[in-house]
Structures are given as C-alpha cells and as structure tokens.
Design a protein around this nucleic acid. Structure first.
Lengths: 146, 146
DNA sequence: AAAGATTGATGCATCAATCTTC
DNA sequence: GAAGATTGATGCATCAATCTTT
C-alpha cells in the first residue's frame, strides 16, 4: 500500500535513524561508559542546575515520565554518578564528583560524535532545509498524529 | 562544542526520529496489538517465505543477530503468532493462522501510519532530496563512523 | 571446529499500582 | 485528594556463555 518511492523513503529513514543513534551511543559508551540516558541526565544537571535539580524539574526538562526518571536515577545512583537528597516536597538530585567528571569527559566526545555521524555527512546546502523538515516531523501535532 | 546551528539540527533530529517511530508503533499496536518487532518478522515471513522461512534466513533478511531473533521468536511463539519446527541443520519458522491474520490486519495500518507520520508531512519538493541525505547517513561506512 | 540456536543477565522504556506528603 | 516519587512487571536490544548438530 506504499508506493515504491514511499517505501524507499521509509526504509532510508529507518536505517539512518537507527544507525546514527547507535553510532553516537557507541562513541559515548566507548569513551566514558555512559549511556545516552546517563548523558542526558548529567548534562541537564550540570547545565541547568549547576549540579543539582529537583527531580520533578529534571523530569520536566527532559520531557520524561516520573517512573522512567526514577528507574534511571536508581541505576545511576548505584553507579555513583549522582545522589538523591530528600527536600521540601520532593527530592533533590545532585551530581557526584564522579558524575561531574564523567560528563566533562563525555561532552566533547558527544559533540564530535554528533558531528561525525550527523552533521558532517550532510551536504552544507541541505542542512537548513533538512532542519525545517525535521521540525515539521517532530512537531507536537504532526499531520495525522496525536 | 557544537555550533548553535548544529545543536538545533541535532535536537530536531532526535525529536523527529523519536516521535515518528513512537507514532507508527502506537498506531500498529492500537489496531493489532503487534509491536514493530512482531510486525517486521511477520512481514518477512509472509513476503519472502510464503509463510515459512528458515530461522537463519530470517535473521539475515532482517539484519538481526541470532540471539535477538531467538528471544523475539520465543515471545511470538508464546503469543501464538508462529511456530518453530526443527529442520535439516536449522529451524523452520512458520506463520500460524493467527499470525497470518494479524499481519494482514496490520499491513494497511502500517502503511497509513507511515504516510501520516512521515510521508505526508514532508513537502513533495523535499522528498527526493531528503532520501538522498538519509541514504548517506545510513550508509555502512558513514563519515567518521564504523 | 564451525554454524545454528538458546539462555541468562543487564540496561532501558512503558504501564499500572502503590506509597508518601502536603 | 493531588502532586511527587517508587516499585514491579513486561517487552525489547545487546552481550557473553552455552548447547547442539553436522
């Protein structure tokens, strides 16, 4: 029920999205042992909160559900990347020294990976155009979507 | 270390890829209860094998590792979507009646979802151009990549 | 030994149910 | 009760170890 062109575009989309994601994740993991989820959290903590944020603010900033964040933080706490401290009506999440070190290490690796696997392969003349298309596809009320 | 433009492009990429994938998966699941992984397997079986394929051929066709396929087939067998039959030096995977029915149901839903969430939102003048970029990004030896 | 396949463990996403604290 | 957070279960991807059969 898809035309040949549509099927090819879908296939190219699936392959590209899977591989870019996997390559970036592999580069970060190889250099630091961090997962993409780890890195997302450490980055928010160090950028937005100067090392500490209330858990709910973190969830909102990431666009994550509470339970997802809670599970993720538990794994990261176990690895010594951060601490959770009870606070007024909530929990404060704090970068540990180890977490701060890891994210400092990961940041340039992440940037290089994004460049190597996404930015650089895109012809310069296509970048602006591509971004517009991606913004449409990612918009909240995308055509036909929820 | 990323320029503003690069960071915006990366962000738009991440958001678009996550959401398109999630929307297509949600549409298929809502209509049939199948996951994307289920659908991928049922589709290969019905298209390539006329309902049956040797497990290893299936793995190659999907580009999956053996263990991933084995786990997935176990879950699907449990749900009654297919059967595994020992064969000469290998295992034959066969669509059950239930699996055949489900994939027949899912196929048009999948096509409609791909159209609604990927194809239709892309301006017609951009489609060919986008596909070229995606093919570069998904290529085996992408720049800087493995 | 080598190919085909399974298994168990771990990490991550999601859902539903629960608990706590205001 | 409502917001914030945790927990347990399930599905899926990946890795390493194992088993089977030729």
């Amino acid at each position: 029920m898809l035309s040949d062109d549509d099927a090819r575009l879908w296939h190219a989309w699936k392959t590209a999205t899977e591989r870019v994601e996997a390559r970036v994740a592999a580069d970060i993991a190889a250099a630091t042992g961090l997962s993409v989820a780890d890195f997302a959290i450490l980055t928010r903590l160090s950028e937005l909160g100067g090392g500490a944020l209330r858990q709910n603010e973190l969830a909102v900033a990431l666009g994550w559900h509470r339970s997802r964040l809670s599970h993720q933080l538990s794994r990261m706490e176990r690895k010594g990347l951060l601490e959770r401290v009870p606070h007024d009506s909530g929990v404060e999440v704090r970068l540990s020294d180890r977490g701060a070190g890891q994210v400092a290490l990961a940041r340039p690796v992440h940037a290089a990976a994004v460049r190597a696997h996404l930015i650089d392969p895109i012809p310069a003349t296509e970048a602006a155009r591509l971004r517009v298309v991606l913004e449409v596809l990612g918009a909240d009320g995308a055509a036909g979507g929820a």
